[in-house]
Amino acid sequence: MQVALSRSMVGGRSTGLQQLLLKENSNFEEELTGDSEPVHRPLNTARTSVGMYGILINKIQAATQQWSSKFLSYAGRIQLLNTVVFGLKNFWCAIALLPKSVLKTINKMCKTFFGNIADNDRRMVDKSWSSIYSPLAEGGFGVKELLSWNKALISKWLWLIDQPHQGLWSAWHKAYHLSSCSIWDTTIQDRFTESFRSIFIVKDDLLAATGSPTAAKTLLQDWCTRYKFTVTTSYNWFRPRSPTIHWHKAISQKVVIPRHDIISSLAYQKKLATIDKLTLKGLMIPNWCILCKKDNESHDHLFFDFSFSRVVWQELMDWNHLAGRSNTIDRSWSGACNGK
């Protein structure tokens, strides 16, 4: 039985097997279909340049520029970053480690899209972009940190090639690249592809953190659930950590819609773009509340001191048969976290 060359399929595109073998030794590009335009990724042994990632950068830039013209809430922007933009990056991150310049460019585009950066932008968020990468339990918005997620995906290939069972992918690399030796006893070589070099870079990071191949292997096994590698667990190990906040459970619940969740988180950290904070940034605007036109606009004024806010709080306290009323955000959340 022979292979029907005319019916061979690579990435959803019909091609001959002979052409595939010829391109594999030169500059074959794998295609990801499912879109009107394929996503190309070079798989040759030469080191990739920044220009090879132009398709990825252009797709993310086109998406963020199109969305920037729409009036989206912070929750809507986070949702788009975690779905559409993350889906574009996820395919590339699963193949090899992205260059630092590419990561910097993507992060800059995402930061500009989320904060709608402009000198006179009234909706500007006073929040560090690095803290947005933290999960909700640590005061962030749950956006995946790109470098850590990239390493987490590559670590799955390191775990797979170290397994005793012989899958097609691991068996070929062990025979061709590793010469039937353990990956922990092999050093990186020039003949390796960019994807295979990335596995060795992640391996060196694990060895530097754990101190020995045995400890590194144990760490990889700890990231498994029911004999399957869990990328999320690996990502939690690679990502930067922040202290857990005590008020997280008071606002992050299933019944709370994302928009209210993010606004509450920003309000507690006093990161909303209120007039008192905008004037400190040098904006020349009237320093009074736009609703009552009497007092200065601040977080505590909008949520507690404003006349309508006082009525809402009083109705809530009477409805729950509670006495007293908080007059600051800090005291309000402290009472909510303590069940008061």
Rank of each mutant, 00 (worst) to 15 (best):
F306E: 05
F200Q: 03
N82S: 08
Y74T: 11
F200V: 00
W169C: 06
T274N: 13
K144T: 04
V231N: 03
S179A: 15
L80S: 04
C289R: 05
E29V: 13
A46V: 15
D35C: 06
L20A: 12
V10K: 08
C289F: 01
Q18W: 12
K174P: 03
A137H: 12
E31C: 10
I183G: 04
V231T: 11
F28M: 11
C110K: 04
S182P: 02
L283Y: 06
L17T: 09
L158I: 02
I251F: 01
F28K: 01
L206M: 06
D222T: 13
K249H: 05
M284G: 02
L20D: 09
T279V: 13
I257A: 10
R123T: 13
T274W: 12
T328M: 02
A250K: 08
L158C: 01
F196M: 08
I275E: 02
K174D: 07
A137Y: 08
D119F: 11
R77P: 07
W92T: 04
S36H: 07
T83Q: 06
G139I: 02
Q253K: 15
E138Y: 09
L103Q: 08
N150G: 00
A118L: 12
D162A: 14
I245C: 06
P286G: 02
T225L: 07
R122W: 06
G34Y: 00
I57L: 10
R47D: 11
